[in-house]
């Protein structure tokens, strides 16, 4: 018997908040990133993590994967990685004959819940192309049959600092990721001290074992996500606001958006895509649900706006090397300038 909707929403919310609390036990100073990843899980979106080396990206992903339940697979991005390395691998069996086995993408089959692509920008575009297809379609044909991956979410990370032997992820590929979440070193001095001196942070593997496993039922997330998305309503005012935000990414000058260091008209080549805006609203609805509301507020959009939009923007090439900084400033200016309710209507 299916429980009433209110109970479902409430129960799942409790699970979601528990997941956050479990991860926070082992990952400190990343509350916002944890909340965003939680949103991505319930919005069924793939996540690109961006940050330096040794900031805890892998531990974070492993902890979350443990909470979600299901199978967790991982692959390292290298310059010689080929698409077939994701699908199968060959080896010599005990009988001395060559054998072929399923690769990390297929090994767990439908039980795959988290696929972690470490340093995705080190992989070649061919690998990107395969991953993008799987991410979009969630199935792949191999060994003369179709593998379905309905519960899989991809968590990838990239190191923005190091540029040698890396391949920039094209805008179309970035657009497949629901969010790009920055993982930054905590600024709080006490947290930093704890990270340095608390011995529990020395062994990441042991750390993740402290996280309770299977907090969520990974194979029910898709169904619940659909229920959640149908449940959260948006008013005409908010829909107008979302449209204004979208248009402001395409024609910032029209909305009076200004930046200190660059001319916005020359900065933006292409604004957010329709898929991106759809994902934005999807993630915002999850945020509203986590805040125990059944209506979308502007704050829900703000909570995910930068992480949903920044990596989708295509800047003119002269600004690409300052992308991280400019994207942050641009999205901040948009939220600060585009009014809700729209001033034109109010005046």
């Amino acid at each position: 018997m299916v429980p009433p909707l209110d109970h479902q929403l409430s129960d799942w919310r409790n699970h979601a908040l528990k997941l956050e609390n479990e991860v926070k036990k082992v990952i400190v100073g990343q509350d916002k990133a944890i909340r965003l990843m939680n949103i991505a899980i319930f919005a069924r979106g793939h996540v690109l993590l961006e940050g330096g080396v040794g900031v805890g990206k892998t531990t974070l992903l492993q902890s979350i994967a443990r909470c979600i339940g299901g199978a967790y697979e991982r692959i390292e991005g290298t310059v010689d990685l080929m698409p077939n390395d994701l699908i199968y691998h060959t080896y010599l069996g005990e009988d001395g004959r060559p054998k072929i086995d399923e690769g990390p993408l297929l090994r767990a089959g439908e039980n795959l819940s988290v696929f972690f692509f470490n340093e995705i920008n080190r992989a070649r575009p061919q690998v990107h192309a395969l991953m993008l297809r799987v991410m979009a379609e969630r199935h792949i044909s191999a060994f003369k049959k179709e593998y379905r991956l309905p519960h899989m979410v991809v968590f990838a990370d990239r190191n923005q600092v190091e540029k040698n032997e890396t391949f920039e992820i094209p805008s179309a590929a970035r657009d497949r990721f629901m969010m790009e979440i920055p993982i930054e070193i905590p600024e709080d001095r006490e947290l930093r001290k704890s990270l340095m001196f608390n011995v529990k942070f020395q062994h990441a593997e042991n750390l993740t074992k402290q996280v309770e496993s299977n907090v969520l039922q990974f194979d029910q997330l898709n169904n619940f996500s659909d229920i959640l998305q149908s449940h959260i309503k948006s008013s005409p005012t908010l829909e107008d606001y979302a449209i204004d935000l979208w248009e402001s990414t395409q024609s910032p000058a029209k909305y009076g958006i200004k930046m200190d260091t660059v001319d916005v008209n020359r900065l933006v080549h292409t604004g957010a895509s329709p898929r991106g805006m759809g994902m934005l609203l999807k993630a915002a609805r999850v945020n509203a649900w986590l805040m125990n509301r059944d209506s979308l507020y502007p704050e829900d959009i703000h909570a995910v706006f930068h992480e949903l939009i920044a990596h989708r923007l295509v800047f003119n090439s002269m600004y690409e090397n300052r992308r991280t900084q400019l994207a942050r400033e641009f999205t901040t200016q948009i939220l600060n300038t585009v009014a809700v309710p729209a001033q034109a209507k109010a005046a």
Binding site: S235, T237, S295, Y297, P298
Partner: peptide, 8 residues
């Protein structure tokens, strides 16, 4: 305001 404009 939220109730009126967004929660309807």
């Amino acid at each position: 305001s939220n109730q009126s404009l967004f929660a309807q």
